[in-house]
Structures are given as C-alpha cells and as structure tokens.
C-alpha cells in the first residue's frame, strides 16, 4: 500500500513537472517582449535592456528554466503587472468562486445524472430510456458556450427568472453550474445506465432473488452498491474537468473565478497570473486523479495491490 502510494505520488509529481515545463516553453515562444509589456510603449531602449537583464531574459534558456522551476516550487510566479500584487495571491483570491461553481455543477451532475441513469436502466428499451439517451448525447454534443448563451437568453432575458451574471446571489450559480454540468450529467447518466444494466445481468443478482429478497432490496442494496464504485471514481475526474472547463463557462457568465482571470490575464499578456492559474488548474486535475485512484481502494474490496 505504502509502495503504491509512493509510486502514484511520484507519477503525479512527474506529471506536474511536465505541465510546468510545457507552460514555461509556450510562454517563451509566444511573441512579445515581457519587458516592453511591463514598461509600456514610452520606455527607452535603455530601460528595456535594463528590465530584460533584471528579468534574466538574456540568459540561456536552460538557466532561465531552472530558475523558473525554483520560483514555481516557492509559488513565486512574480508580480502581476496589471493587478499590481503577487500573481499567485491574485489567483488564490479567485479560487473560492471557481470551487463553488464546480461544486454546484457536481451537485447537479449527481442529483440529475445518477437518477436519470437508474431510471433509464429500469426502463431499458422503452421511451424513457431513449429520451435519456438523446438528452445525454445532445448534452455532450452541444458546445458549452452556446448552451450558456441560450440559457441566458431563455431564463434571463425572456423569462427573467435567473440572473445572467454573478451578482453575489446564490441563484446566480444556477445557470453557469448547469451549463458546466450538462455534458457530464449526460455522460454520467449513460455510465450509470450501462453499469446498472451490466450489474443486473450478473449472477449475484439471481442469487439475491433466490434468497427471496424483494426487488427493492435486490436493486437498492445489491445492484446499486456495485454500480456506485465506478461512479464515485469518475466523480473525481468530472470535478477535474469542471475546474478546467470553468475557463469557458466563467467567461460566458462573467463569473469571477480562476477561468475568467486566466483569460483576462492572457488577453492582457499578464503572463505571471496566467501561468499561476494554469499551474493551479493542473495541480487540481492531477490531484483529483490521484484521489480517484485512492478511492478505488476504499470502495472496491477486490482492488488490492496485486490487481493495480
């Protein structure tokens, strides 16, 4: 167990290292002179040269990279030239909004996706099953930004039921969280449906019936218990996607989270903040994947060290 933990942890660190490297390289490749950006168009050649030297931009790339790695480990991404203060602090400042949004989206996904999947499985081949299937496919096929805009048009502009943008109220969460959840909600519904049908065909279900247990017990205890394991493990993955997908959704709904901050920063070439945001999202994604693997141990008694 310890051995496995250490191995998984090492893999995660390696992944993170890769992410940091890619972000570093991409930001160096993008055209534009950071010194010019920071100092503005009024800066003299001498000022620019001084700033470049200060930033170490003249150094060999490898040296810059190693220095950069040290900075990232200390969570020092530099200062945001746009917002003034520490770039990482600026990102952390926006974190609660994104977490709230992702949490609500997860709530939607679970509260709707799981029952829909179970319902479809119980009515396999009937209209309800096909309806869930179409809904699921549509939800996955439609681009999130379009869904977001449509929902705003319908529920905010026309019906005037829900606020279109963040106004500090809890109901303002409904539209962005639902938009974020929609593709995964359908995905989860199909996963639950197929998992449930697969479990229903297993021998232990026949045994449970042979024991004279009621259909309610057979389903709610014996079948769902086994359907739940894969579901709980994908929830971690879904949450990771939510934090990554929030980039688009937050922009559509003007939600003050990491995603919108990241886009603003990229648009304004505030690379320190953009980098801090990207790395934080990567940390979340990798961390949640690690958590999912660990959950496997807790949930499925058959998963042992030999089987992983």
């Amino acid at each position: 167990m310890i051995h496995y933990l250490v191995r998984r942890l090492a893999q995660s660190v390696l992944l993170l290292f890769g992410a940091i490297t890619i972000v570093f390289l991409v930001l160096r490749v993008i055209p534009g002179d950071p010194a010019a950006l920071i100092l503005g168009s009024q800066a003299t050649q001498a000022d620019l040269a001084a700033k470049r030297a200060e930033l170490g931009l003249g150094d060999p790339l490898l040296l810059q990279y190693v220095r950069h790695l040290g900075d990232v480990v200390r969570l020092d991404f530099g200062d945001s030239w746009r917002l003034g203060g520490d770039a990482f602090a600026a990102v952390i400042d926006r974190l609660p909004a994104t977490i709230t949004l992702a949490g609500f989206a997860l709530g939607f996904t679970l509260a709707l996706g799981f029952p829909l999947g179970v319902y479809a499985a119980r009515h396999k081949g009937k209209l309800a099953d096909r309806a869930v299937s179409y809904f699921s496919l549509t939800g996955q096929a439609l681009p999130a930004f379009w869904v977001g805009i449509m929902l705003v048009l319908i529920f905010s502009r026309t019906l005037n039921l829900l606020p279109a943008t963040a106004d500090g109220s809890a109901v303002a969460l409904v539209l962005p969280a639902f938009t974020l959840a929609l593709p995964f909600l359908g995905w989860l519904a199909r996963l639950v449906r197929n998992g449930t049908l697969e479990e229903l065909g297993r021998d232990y279900v026949r045994t449970a019936r042979a024991k004279g247990l009621s259909e309610r017990v057979v389903f709610n205890i014996h079948v769902l218990r086994n359907t739940l394991t894969p579901v709980v493990t994908v929830l971690g993955l879904i949450l990771g996607h939510f934090i990554a997908d929030a980039v688009i959704i937050e922009q559509v709904f003007a939600w003050p989270g990491i995603g919108s901050l990241m886009i603003e920063s990229i648009q304004n070439r505030d690379y320190a903040v953009a980098e801090a945001a990207i790395i934080l999202i990567a940390v979340f994604y990798i961390g949640l994947n690690l958590l999912v693997d660990l959950l496997y141990f807790a949930l499925d008694p058959r998963v042992t060290l030999e089987t992983v």
Partner: peptide
Amino acid sequence: RRLRGEELAMIFQDPLSALNPSL
C-alpha cells in the same frame, strides 16, 4: 418470492460470481 429462501433454495455452479463482490 416469499417461498424462496423459506421453502425453496438454490445454489449455483460458480460461487464467486454468485456472491455479491461488494458485500
């Protein structure tokens, strides 16, 4: 259903798949 377990019972060829793996 009430007769099953009470009056009639059944065991199967493969007890591994016949038992619930998660309980």
